[in-house]
Measured scan of single mutants.
Amino acid sequence: MPSETPQAEVGPTGCPHRSGPHSAKGSLEKGSPEDKEAKEPLWIRPDAPSRCTWQLGRPASESPHHHTAPAKSPKILPDILKKIGDTPMVRINKIGKKFGLKCELLAKCEFFNAGGSVKDRISLRMIEDAERDGTLKPGDTIIEPTSGNTGIGLALAAAVRGYRCIIVMPEKMSSEKVDVLRALGAEIVRTPTNARFDSPESHVGVAWRLKNEIPNSHILDQYRNASNPLAHYDTTADEILQQCDGKLDMLVASVGTGGTITGIARKLKEKCPGCRIIGVDPEGSILAEPEELNQTEQTTYEVEGIGYDFIPTVLDRTVVDKWFKSNDEEAFTFARMLIAQEGLLCGGSAGSTVAVAVKAAQELQEGQRCVVILPDSVRNYMTKFLSDRWMLQKGFLKEEDLTEKKPWWWHLRVQELGLSAPLTVLPTITCGHTIEILREKGFDQAPVVDEAGVILGMVTLGNMLSSLLAGKVQPSDQVGKVIYKQFKQIRLTDTLGRLSHILEMDHFALVV
């Protein structure tokens, strides 16, 4: 994948999101292997301009796509893939009243899908469409860049269908997702969380590099694949309309690839034109409109599966009536509230959605109805927002919020430890010299600072030695090549209790 991002070429006709291997024109390309080798690009942008032909009021008969309808489940399912879809609609009884809503608040519980998330729908649909058009064949390999849930859905379907599955996901995604993927037989590649989507090191860039190296491999490409919004247009939206008897006044959905909100909203605009569509985008993402909503100094966020630093091709923002931004604290607070007060075992993005819903639905009156999409299960986040310690460490809970008995030293300040200034190293000294210094002084790690004293990161003896043994660096290389740029900081005025929580999850903390 090139470091400079080429513009994806656009073909003359058809839909841009065809499933299957992508040609340089962004659509299915038939021909000899030699032709494909000559024409197939190194990668295709996940934010390529959409060429979708959908228009409100256009006859369904003019759609270029294969459409399906929700099917009634048999008493005995032939395999677990038949437990994807037909998820329950559940009334939220307490939270709406707590925040003064007059309307009825309903939750579409997508964590009841077989793999635990709304992404099971698009995973199965992308595979079925690729099999139907002859792209996927027995023994082929599926590769997908994902925040985890699409990966789980694909790995689940691949396990049943017999495909090899490789999932490329950023490091910030939970260990629970990784464990589930491994249990399903998927191979996992992790990428830096802070890598831009168009960087060769991003999950998108690495996935395309693997595709170019592995024979008979395919990126189904949830960011561009029409099967993504079509899955929701054909099934999720129809289920909502049936469950609500066609009567709903507002739908609120958090947005990642945009397939969920695009597919549902398009069908609702056709069948229930008075329904307002509300999009939820986390602070630090750029999906919301108008652009002024996205202006923030924050560039990272903890909530998973929603928000991006690019506009995915499948996201149709014209069908969203209003956007709201959400933050991590309210997302996790509301997710825990949904679990504790409503018994809905949902993930953090569901918290984002409901946090926005109780604001947006203030305009609705008694007798009206708001539906929220709860995308995934708490299963993926047992060591994250479900953990009091994690919430404390991230600053989303305060010590006084917890009532468990603490040891005698818990409320003492870090400054009472009488710490001395640490050994520091410059980023320009060599790895070999740094190892000598650390061994001589008896230290395992040291902060790396520039000549102005600005902290650049941390270097550890173990990481340097393993990097040297693996051949990633040489003793003569500058130590700046092996620094940890993500590390926890703590102030002298913070409590030892807070430091204790940090050290339970990290090997060190830097006192500043």
Rank of each mutant, 00 (worst) to 15 (best):
V206G: 08
E187W: 08
A38Q: 04
V160E: 09
K172E: 06
P74I: 03
G11W: 07
K75M: 13
H66V: 13
I76R: 02
A195K: 06
R121W: 00
S174K: 02
L184K: 01
G57E: 13
P46I: 10
T191V: 04
W208G: 03
R266A: 14
D249E: 06
E40F: 15
A130C: 07
C275W: 07
P215V: 04
G205R: 11
A130K: 00
P33D: 10
G256D: 01
E201C: 08
C103Q: 05
I143L: 07
S3C: 10
D129V: 10
S174P: 02
A226P: 10
T257Y: 00
L56I: 13
I84F: 09
K172N: 06
L106R: 08
G246Y: 04
T257A: 08
T53Y: 04
L251K: 03
A186C: 04
Q242R: 12
S3I: 02
L220D: 00
A207L: 00
Q7T: 12
C272F: 12
A130R: 08
A130E: 03
N93F: 02
A195S: 03
I214M: 09
R209F: 06
L220F: 03
G134H: 06
D234C: 01
T5S: 14
P33I: 03
S61E: 12
G139N: 05
G116T: 07
R51C: 02
S174Q: 03
A159V: 15
S175I: 12
G246A: 02
G85I: 04
K172R: 09
T135Q: 09
P6W: 04
I142N: 02
G151M: 00
A231W: 02
V178A: 09
V204N: 07
S217T: 09
S19W: 13
E62K: 14
I261V: 15
K177E: 04
T257W: 00
I240S: 00
I143P: 01
K177L: 00
M250A: 02
E9P: 14
T141P: 08
E270V: 12
V252C: 08
C52Q: 02
A186P: 03
A71W: 03
L184Q: 06
S202T: 08
P229Y: 05
N113H: 11
E40I: 10
A24D: 14
L248V: 14
E201T: 11
E37G: 11
A38S: 13
P273W: 14
S73Q: 12
E62F: 07
G162F: 05
M250K: 07
W43N: 07
E4D: 14
S23C: 04
A157W: 08
F197D: 07
T235F: 15
A24W: 05
N225S: 07
S23L: 01
K102D: 05
T257E: 02
E176I: 00
A157Q: 06
C52D: 02
G153W: 03
A265S: 13
L28K: 06
T260P: 01
L136Q: 05
R224F: 01
A69L: 02
Y233L: 03
M89G: 03
G26W: 10
G256T: 00
G115R: 07
A159N: 13
Q55P: 02
E104Y: 07
R132N: 11
W43H: 09
H203Y: 08
G134Y: 06
L136I: 09
E128F: 11
S23F: 14
T262W: 03
G258Y: 00
E29T: 12
A226E: 09
S19A: 14
R132S: 11
A265R: 06
A157G: 13
Y163A: 00
L42M: 10
L230K: 09
A69V: 12
T68K: 10
E239C: 05
A155H: 04
N212A: 02
P78L: 12
C15G: 10
K97V: 07
A265L: 03
P12W: 08
D133C: 05
K98Y: 04
R190E: 02
W54N: 06
D140F: 08
C52Y: 02
R18L: 09
M89K: 06
M250N: 00
I219W: 02
P145E: 04
I95Y: 02
